[in-house]
Every structure is written in structure tokens, then in C-alpha cells.
Simulated assay, not measured.
Amino acid sequence: MNINDAELVVQLQNNEVNAFDSLYWKYHQAVYRNIFKFVKDAAVTEDILQEVFARLWEKRESIRPDQPVSGWLFVISFNLSVTYIRKKMREQALHKNILAQEAGDIPVADHASMNEEQYNLLVKAIAQLSPKKRTIVTRCKLEGKTYDEVASELNISRNTVKEHLSAAMLILNDYMQRNGDPRYILLLLFFLNYRGTLS
């Protein structure tokens, strides 16, 4: 993880608003793109984006500086997006059982522990990768960078980025299927794979 992020998290925990601003400007575009691909509505995406960063501030004391804050933002944005989709489907009375069948009905009281479990699972899965694959997954999946951007940063070809990412996703999928909670693992896997279309 970029050491600057670790420093920013420490500053954030010391109530430094500038650290929050830095994290917002670093990650808000990637988080926005990820949410929009899921909910397909610009206004809703903006609302969820603001909620993600509101939670970053509210939960700042519980975030570990030694783990990627980008992963934390990913999990929170994923769960808020899923919550919106489930609510919309219930309100429209269309296919109301689809997400429930995949993820199970998760009580609101369990959301905090679910976030933590998903985040820990994601961190552990990424830790199984080689350093290069880990870097590519982090930049493409968690930071929302394109294949071309990552290729330029790492001085490798676009195809090499795609090959490493594809191999890494197989490893991540296997790890999470073997170690994840069946209530939500299918949705987490779906969202990880879905984000692979950003380039």
C-alpha cells in the first residue's frame, strides 16, 4: 500500500480535515465510477458517494493504517450500492427475490460486521498474490485506474497488465469462494469481476 495512505489514515484519526480532503480527491473518481457501473444512475451515485466518504469520517478511528484504505472504500461503496439495488427492486416489486436468493436477507444490525468481514476477506485474498499481481489488482480494482494508466506507471504493456489481472482474478475468486460467507460472497465476487470492464 502507498505509505502516503497510511500516513493520511493516521492524520485522519487525529481529526485532521486536510487528510480527509486528500483521500477524497485521491479516490472519489474511482469510487464514483464503481458505484455508477452498478446503480446506473448519476444522482443516486452522487448520493452513495457522499455517504461513502461520510462513513470514512465517521468510522475513521476503526480504520487500520496498515491496510489499504482503498479496499475499505471499495467494500463500503459495494454494500451501499447493493442496499440501494435491493431497496429499488422491493419498491418496484420486480424480481424482489433475486438478490435475497443470492445474498440472503442480512439484518441491518449485521451490516457493520458484514463490512468488516468483507474487508478482511478482500485484504487476505489480495495478500495471496505475487507483488506484481497485488499491485495491478490494487491499482485497477481498488483505485479504479485503467489498463493503460497502470501499464504506463509500471512500464509494462497493456496486455501484460490484462494477463496479470486475469490470472490474479482467478486466484482471488478461488480464495474467496473457499473462505467467504455464502450470504454475500457471490455478490462480492460479481462486483470484483464487474469492475474489470473499466478499461
Rank of each mutant, 00 (worst) to 15 (best):
Q67C: 12
Y27C: 05
V31L: 04
H111A: 11
T45W: 09
N18E: 12
A103P: 00
E51M: 03
E61V: 02
P107Q: 11
R86E: 13
V69E: 09
L80R: 11
K59W: 00
V75R: 05
Q50W: 00
Y32H: 13
H111Y: 13
L94K: 11
L49R: 00
A42Y: 06
S81V: 01
K26H: 13
R90W: 10
F38W: 03
D41P: 00
A100Y: 06
G104Y: 03
Y27R: 06
A109R: 15
S77G: 03
D110W: 10
T83I: 12
V108A: 14
R64V: 08
L23S: 07
S70W: 02
I48Y: 08
Y24I: 01
V108H: 11
K96S: 14
K87M: 08
G104C: 09
Q101A: 10
V44Q: 14
Q50C: 05
F78K: 00
F20C: 02
A42F: 03
S22K: 06
L23A: 06
A30Q: 08
W57K: 02
L80D: 05
A42G: 02
E58M: 08
N18L: 09
L94T: 12
Y32P: 02
Y32T: 04
R64W: 00
N18Y: 01
I85W: 07
E46V: 07
N97P: 01
R90I: 14
A112K: 15
H28Y: 11
K88E: 14
L80M: 09
V75K: 04
K96L: 13
L56N: 01
S62E: 12
